[in-house]
Design a protein around this nucleic acid. Structure first.
Length: 590
RNA sequence: GCGCCCUUAGCUCAGUUGGAUAGAGCAGCGGCCUUCUAAGCCGCAGGUCGGAGGUUCGAAUCCUCCAGGGCGCGCCA
């Protein structure tokens, strides 16, 4: 439990005590009481709104109630003052000894500091991300979703949730992208056999990455498919093509340290094969959520093959907040993508996931309402879906925009970016912006060793701590710098405000983890690390002006040990945070 | 035409899920500095939180309307 929650429950206990003594009326709603670090540190260490929230129910003035509560809270261990301020806030100040004990907590816990159990009773959580069609390599935008999803999953794990990661393979699509893939593969196959199929048709995938796929088929099957009609080679080319592309995609993901186990790949084709789509449809029909109707023509661009006024089964998604009812079957009798997606989410729910998180790209924003509606319908309100939309990544190189047109050869793949700047850099940068805001990614800037580069800034803080320990060994041979030993050191030598302030910042880490996990906002971890790194660098810099403020104090091993404990605490929390981000906490920078 | 997201300092962005006098980094101005190997450092200035109403003890945060920007608007995935 984080520090602030602990105080919150202590405050609630005080209120309940006053109720028991008949000093306050029973039935007060204590649920809205908060205990938070105030924005302005001069307001103390912990601030509570208890009096403001309870005043109305208690039929007293906020400040009066605050005085009463403050009187009790002031007697709690570690509290040196409880002051009433503003409209009725109570500001608690804790003594330095209390904070030094918290540093011990950090040292004892190590990188497990920040672990939480808020997810313990929340049920199983499913995080679905990447989920691209197996039609080509990933691009930088996919990379953002991949990192976001992966880090969100780790974050939820750290917060104690039971998390499963999943990749949904859109490999069914008859008449869709999979067929386009198959034709593209066939084109390459013909080329491999020395034929000249001419220019690749519009809508196919002209990227070089399919050349080896065509070659492989040519090598294994020879001219077997050459004279056959499309109907015969289509399935084969689709299978070989999508298998090859999945292998490619997995490889791209591994380069980013993103790994899905075999059973974490869920195939759309497989859902169809196992009858899950029919099953979901029948269920909806039985619940009276399907009716036969005619859809309004689309408002935007009318498609060429648009067919007016066809009667078809429609799903009443408008009953669950969608804008229009949605078709589940296409004119050719096949299921729509949406139908399969409903079946997939139903399947998740059936497997016990009451919380589902989908990470999608910006272009799927218009799909959110219907999917949420579908989940509400198909789980009868018992399953919850949160869709996280990742906005576009604007890639540039030294300030010059990198073109990302779909035409092959003209697009930078995720893999190329990872190979150039490294996976740690890609992972971190992807979280330096909220998911719903566009992200600028400059290939040159992100590898600079400067204050402007957040990855470097945080990594450097960790490496700098390590460097201090190396020096410590030189200055005090035989000094034991293990966290366990430093925790037993003379921490009472930490007396400076800036040192205590740094400990206070460390103690907000568990709270950061919890709030980031609850809001599904992993970027908060990156921002916290930047703040912590800045505070640590700032303290280091004070040693420049005044040598007595350095972490290593020649001739005073006790003071040095105390300060090293603080450095170690910072290093551990940074490592803990980087662990969530999946970024290596380096000990040295090159 | 409709839906979703966004709008916070000159620029790029945070904002503890409704708290107190809205923060940081660049850029600007003014000083200082050469290290516990490393990013130079410190300070100053900079705001009608897009606009207008509303909800309440209290709003950048929630609701309504308006303006501007992005994305989307087949029975494609």
């Amino acid at each position: 439990m984080n520090l602030f929650k602990r105080f919150q429950s202590e405050i609630v206990a005080v209120v309940e005590g006053l109720v028991a003594e008949h000093l306050l009326p029973p039935g007060l709603d204590t649920g809205r009481i908060t205990a938070e670090p105030p924005r302005d540190p001069s307001h103390g260490d912990i601030s509570t709104n208890a009096a403001l929230v309870l005043a109305k129910g208690a039929k007293t003035k906020p400040r009066e109630l605050a005085e009463m509560l403050a009187g009790r809270l002031g007697k709690h261990g570690g509290v040196i003052s409880a002051e009433v301020a503003g409209a009725g806030f109570i500001n608690l100040r804790l003594d330095d000894g209390f904070w030094r004990d918290r540093l011990i907590d950090v040292l004892v816990s190590g990188t497990a500091y920040g672990d939480s159990d808020i997810g313990k009773d929340a049920g199983k959580v499913n995080v679905e991300y990447v989920s691209t069609n197996p039609t080509g390599p990933l691009h930088i935008g996919h990379g953002r979703g991949a990192v976001f999803g992966d880090v969100l999953a780790s974050l939820l794990e750290k917060a104690g949730f039971d998390v499963t990661r999943e990749y949904y393979i859109n490999d069914a699509g008859k008449g869709g992208q999979i067929e386009a893939l198959a034709r593209s593969v066939y084109h390459r196959y013909r080329e491999a056999l020395g034929e000249d199929p001419g220019e690749m048709a519009e809508g196919l995938y002209p990227g070089d990455y399919l050349i080896p796929v065509g070659q492989a088929i040519a090598e294994r099957d020879g001219k077997k498919w050459l004279s056959k009609p499309e109907a015969e080679w289509m399935e084969h080319c689709a299978n070989v093509g999508s298998d090859a592309m999945m292998a490619l995609i997995r490889d791209d993901l591994e380069a980013l340290s993103i790994h899905f186990a075999e059973e974490e790949f869920i195939s759309e084709r497989e859902l169809h094969r196992r009858g899950k789509v029919d099953k979901a449809f029948n269920w909806l029909e039985q619940k009276g959520l399907i009716y036969t109707g005619v859809l309004e023509p689309p408002k935007g661009k009318i498609p060429d093959d648009y067919e007016e006024g066809r009667e078809q089964p429609l799903f009443r998604t408008t009953d669950f907040g969608d804008d229009v009812d949605r078709p589940l079957k296409r004119a050719n009798g096949n299921w729509t993508y949406f139908a399969a997606d409903i079946a997939y989410h139903r399947d998740k729910f059936d497997r016990g996931f009451t919380t589902m998180i989908d990470v999608w790209g910006a272009d799927h924003g218009g799909y959110v309402k219907r999917m949420k509606a579908a989940v509400e319908a198909i789980t009868e309100g018992k399953g919850e879906l949160d869709v996280k939309i990742c906005q576009l990544v604007n890639l540039s190189d030294g300030g010059k925009p990198v073109k990302m047109s779909k035409r092959a050869g003209d697009f930078v793949t995720l893999r190329e970016v990872v190979d150039r700047v490294g996976k740690d850099v890609v992972r971190f940068i992807m979280l330096t912006r909220r998911n719903d805001a566009p992200l600028d990614f400059d290939l040159e800037k992100v590898t600079e060793q400067s204050r402007d580069n957040p990855v470097f800034y945080v990594q450097y803080a960790h490496a700098r701590a390590h460097s201090i320990f190396r020096h410590a060994h030189r200055e005090f041979p035989g000094i034991d710098i293990s966290p366990h030993n430093l925790a037993k050191g003379p921490l009472e030598r930490l007396t400076r405000d800036d040192e205590i302030a740094l400990i206070k910042l460390l103690t907000t880490w568990p709270r950061q983890v919890e709030s980031a996990a609850e809001t599904h906002e992993p970027h908060r971890i990156a921002f916290f690390l930047l703040e912590l790194a800045a505070a640590f660098h700032g303290l280091w810099n004070k040693g420049n002006d005044d040598a007595s403020l350095r972490f290593l104090v020649p001739g005073d091993e006790a003071l040095t040990a105390a300060r090293l404990a603080l450095v170690r605490g910072v290093q551990l929390v940074i490592a803990s945070g980087l662990g969530v981000l999946g970024v290596e906490p380096v000990e040295e920078l090159r």
